[in-house]
Structures are given as structure tokens and as C-alpha cells.
């Protein structure tokens, strides 16, 4: 089971670019490794990450197997209004991991 962790300031001044740090547990199986019987272990990674701020997409990433296990992603968002940031990771199998965080803008 994957869990996502988000770190961002709880409050921010309007117009300030705040850093958002995300970390999600996932093996990010690259498809390059082989098991004990020398069979290729099939690729299974989180291939997409999207961050929306009050419903509007602000940042998106497409990930390849070269992204390390337990993907870490940090980026900036300008604080414009109080509300919710939603984070969605999409797995190769189509399943998603979702997390959200609140921010108060003063």
C-alpha cells in the first residue's frame, strides 16, 4: 500500500512562492531488473504526477523508470488564495494515489 506525504507551510503571504515537498512510497520497478530465475521483472512505476491548486493544474510531471523508488518531488507554487492543493500520482496499472493539503494565505 502506498502512502503519500506532503510538506508545505500551513500559512503563506499572498504572492509568496512556497516550496511543496512530496514523497510517496512506491517500488518504481524499472523493468530492467531480473529475478532469481533470470526472468525480467515487469515494469511497474508511477508514471504521472499532477498538482492542482483549488482545482487548477499548476504542476505536472511525467516520470520514467529512472526516477528513484519512493519518488520525491519538490517544486514551487505562488500562494494566491487560501484553499486546497491536491496531488495525484498515476500507476502503470491505472490506479491512483491521492493526497491533499490545506493552505491559508494571508
Amino acid at each position: 500500500m502506498s502512502t503519500a506525504r506532503i510538506r508545505l507551510p500551513a500559512t503563506a503571504k499572498k504572492g509568496e512562492a512556497i516550496e511543496i515537498k512530496t514523497l510517496v512510497t512506491h517500488t518504481m520497478e524499472s523493468g530492467q531488473r531480473r529475478d532469481a530465475q533470470n526472468n525480467v521483472i515487469p515494469r511497474k512505476i508511477l508514471n504521472k504526477f499532477v498538482c492542482t491548486y483549488n482545482g487548477k493544474e499548476v504542476f505536472r510531471a511525467e516520470m520514467a523508470p529512472a526516477i528513484s523508488a519512493n519518488p520525491y518531488m519538490a517544486f514551487f507554487v505562488t500562494a494566491t488564495e487560501s484553499g486546497t492543493l491536491d496531488f495525484v500520482w498515476t500507476d502503470d496499472d491505472g490506479s491512483t494515489i491521492k493526497e491533499s493539503a490545506k493552505i491559508t494565505v494571508t
Binding site: 509568496e16 491548486y53 499548476v58 510531471a61 523508470p65 520525491y72 519538490a74 514551487f76 505562488t78
Partner: peptide
């Protein structure tokens, strides 16, 4: 909306 064009992650080499 990012305010700053910067991204950090961890990669495999």
C-alpha cells in the same frame, strides 16, 4: 502559478 521554475527529485544512474 509556480512563481519559480525549479524542481527537485531523486534519480537512478
Amino acid at each position: 502559478a509556480n512563481g519559480k521554475a525549479e524542481v527537485s527529485t531523486r534519480i537512478r544512474l
